[in-house]
Amino acid sequence: MSTIWLVLLGLAMGAIFGVALEKSRVMEPGVLVGQFQFRNFTMLKMFLAATITGLVALAVLNGAFGVALHPKTFALGPVLIGGLILGVGIALAGACPGTALAQAGAGYRDAYAVIAGGIAGAIFYGYNIDWIGAALSFGSYGKITFADLLPLPFWGLALILAAILAAFLLVVLERLVPWQADMDKAEALLDVDAVQAGHGYSAPAE
C-alpha cells in the first residue's frame, strides 16, 4: 500500500476516533481520573462498548472470512510492570497516548506537555530497551488468547464475552450510574469560573 494512501486512511480513521473521544468527553482529565476514583463511569462504558463492538466485528471477520488476528504476546513481566506504570501515567497525565492528542485538538494547552513528555519517554525506552527488557523478561507465554485455552473457537468465545459484557453494561452499570448524569458532571468541569467558585460540580460529601 502506498504511503500517501496509508496517511490519508490514518487521518480519516483518526478524525472519526477524535470526534468520538471529544463527543463522549472520554478525553477530559476529570473524566479519566474520575473513573479511577469511581466518580464517573464514562470511560469504562466507552471502553466496554468499543470492546464489545470489536469482539463482534472480529468474530465475524475471523470466524466467517478467516481474517488473521494480531494478539500481542503475553509476557507477564512487561505486561504487569508496564501496565502498572502506564496506569500511574494515565492518572498523572490525565490522558492515554491517544486521548492526549484529542486534548490538544480540543484546545487544552497542557496536552502538548503530555505529548512532549510521551515522546521523551519513548526515546528513553528506546535507548534503554536492553536492560529494561532483561530485567522484566520473566513469564513469557507467546501470543495466546483465551480461545487457545478453552475448547471453543474464537468467534464463539468472542460472542459469548460480548453478550456478557453488554448485559453487564446495560443491566447493571447503566442502571446504577446513568450516562447522562456523568456527562453533566463532565460538562460542569469545563467551566473554569464555576469550578473555582466551587459551584460547577459538587463532589459527594467525604
Partner: peptide
C-alpha cells in the same frame, strides 16, 4: 503533564501497548 506523559509512554512501551492497543 510532562512527567505524566513520560511515565505514560515508558509504561506503554514496556507493556507493548496502551489503552487502545492492549485495551
Amino acid at each position: 503533564g510532562f512527567v505524566g506523559g513520560f511515565v505514560l509512554l515508558l509504561g506503554a512501551r514496556i507493556a507493548g501497548g496502551c489503552t487502545s492497543g492492549h485495551g
